[in-house]
Each structure stands twice: as structure tokens, then as C-alpha cells.
């Protein structure tokens, strides 16, 4: 509720938003790309293993595309970012809390939700879909390169499978999910960080809890969006 009220304080969070978008979003691209490359490779090999002798091999393209865009792209990227972004936020705000920097901020007449929470939650909500979009593109590309190099499949066959079941909804479904994952991960990080007590041990506990809660929130939201949008 406090974070919702702070949303109106654009003068405070506005100038901080782009910095957080870069820090939480752009800087997370390498880990997302790393995960997407290996997800694409494994999916291509797995689907070939499952389909051989039963289903035409061009279905590899369909499975790689659908799975990367609708499920593994958003969820695996979300999980990785729950670790990177959620832990980063919780540890930073937790340290600020136990060293009285949050109190100092308030004595300087800043609202802690406007200054610390809103820019992080907004940045994660806006940037998770961008990072996920990168991951989707890289995952499908990795699957395609694997298919033409390691499987008995040509580029036109892979693309045939990819196009066969493709709907525009596949992409926006994944991106909507990832935006909600971003909001949840950042919110958990902020709340656990600002709730830190004690010293290093308290910050460590808050960070661990933020990552666990972020991952749990991703799985719950994943099921929620599947129920609502599919």
C-alpha cells in the first residue's frame, strides 16, 4: 500500500528509474543469454530424441519455439533473475537498513518507498520482459543452430515446424508473465531487505528469503497466468 502511494511521487523516483533499469535489466542480459543458449540446445536435442521414429523431425522447431517462448524463456530467466536481482536488492537495502542509511534517507526528508522501492520495482517490471525477449530470441536461435548442425534437419524444415503452431499470443503471453515475475522478484527483494534486522546475519537471512520467495512467486504466477490466459 505504501509502495502504491509512493508511485505518485514521480519527482523522487523518476530520476532514479533509468539507472535501476540499466542495473537490474541491462546488466542481467549476459546471464539470461547464457541460460537461453543451453536451454535451446537441450530442447532441440531432447525433442529430436523424443520424436525420432514417431513424429516428423521438423516438429523440433515447433517444440523449441513454443517451449522457449511460452515457458522456459520467461520462467528460467525469471528464476535466474530472482537470484541475481532479488538477492542484489535485498542485500543492498538490508545493508542500508542495518547501517541506518534508510533512517538517514528519511531524516533528509525522502520517503523510503519513493526513493528505494518504486524505482526498483518499476525497473524490474519493465526490464524483465526485455531481458526475456532477448532470451527467447537466443534460445530459439540456439535450438536452430543445434538442429542444423547436430540433427538431420535443414533450416527450412526447422522454420516450417517453428511457424506451424506459432501464434502471436506465444510471445506476449511470455512477456506478460515475465513482467509480473519482475514485479514480484523486486517487491520481495525490497520488502525483505527493508525488513532486515541485526547485522550481517540478518542481511544474509533476508537475502536468502528474498530469493526463495521470488522463486516461489514466479512458480505461483506461472500457474496463475496459465489458468487465466490459456
Amino acid at each position: 500500500m505504501e509502495a502504491g502511494r509512493a508511485l505518485g511521487d514521480v519527482r523522487t523516483w523518476g530520476p532514479l528509474l533509468f539507472f535501476q533499469m540499466r542495473r537490474l535489466g541491462v546488466d542481467s542480459v549476459p546471464i539470461a543469454v547464457f541460460i537461453a543458449v543451453f536451454t535451446g540446445i537441450v530442447l532441440a536435442l531432447l525433442s529430436s530424441y523424443i520424436f525420432t521414429g514417431a513424429v516428423p523431425l521438423y516438429f523440433v522447431g515447433a517444440l523449441v519455439g513454443k517451449t522457449v517462448m511460452m515457458e522456459l524463456g520467461p520462467v528460467l530467466t525469471g528464476m535466474a533473475l530472482a537470484g541475481r536481482v532479488g538477492a542484489n536488492i535485498a542485500a543492498e537495502l538490508g545493508t542500508m537498513k542495518v547501517t541506518e542509511q534508510v533512517d538517514a534517507l528519511e531524516t533528509l526528508a525522502y520517503d523510503k518507498y519513493s526513493y528505494l522501492v518504486v524505482p526498483r520495482v518499476l525497473a524490474a517490471t519493465l526490464m524483465f520482459p526485455v531481458v526475456t525477449a532477448f532470451a527467447m530470441a537466443v534460445g530459439v536461435t540456439a535450438g536452430w543452430i543445434t538442429a542444423i548442425n547436430l540433427l538431420d534437419l535443414s533450416t527450412p524444415e526447422f522454420l516450417k515446424g517453428l511457424r506451424m503452431f506459432y501464434q502471436f499470443k506465444d510471445i506476449w503471453f511470455g512477456l506478460v508473465k515475465s513482467a509480473s515475475f519482475g514485479a514480484a522478484v523486486a517487491l520481495m527483494g525490497c520488502l525483505r531487505g527493508l525488513g532486515s534486522e541485526g547485522g550481517a546475519q540478518g542481511v544474509g537471512a533476508a537475502t536468502t528469503r528474498a530469493v526463495v520467495l521470488g522463486c516461489e512467486a514466479i512458480l505461483v504466477l506461472d500457474a496463475f497466468w496459465a489458468l487465466v490466459l490459456l
Partner: peptide, 19 residues
Amino acid sequence: LTELRGRIGFVFQFAALFD
């Protein structure tokens, strides 16, 4: 409260500088 805090400076025990 924000306006009041504008009239009060606070020096923290461990300085609480933004690192």
C-alpha cells in the same frame, strides 16, 4: 513530517553515509 524533518539535521552514530 517531511516538512518537519527539513528543520532537523540528524548525525548518526556511525555517520550512516550513503556508501
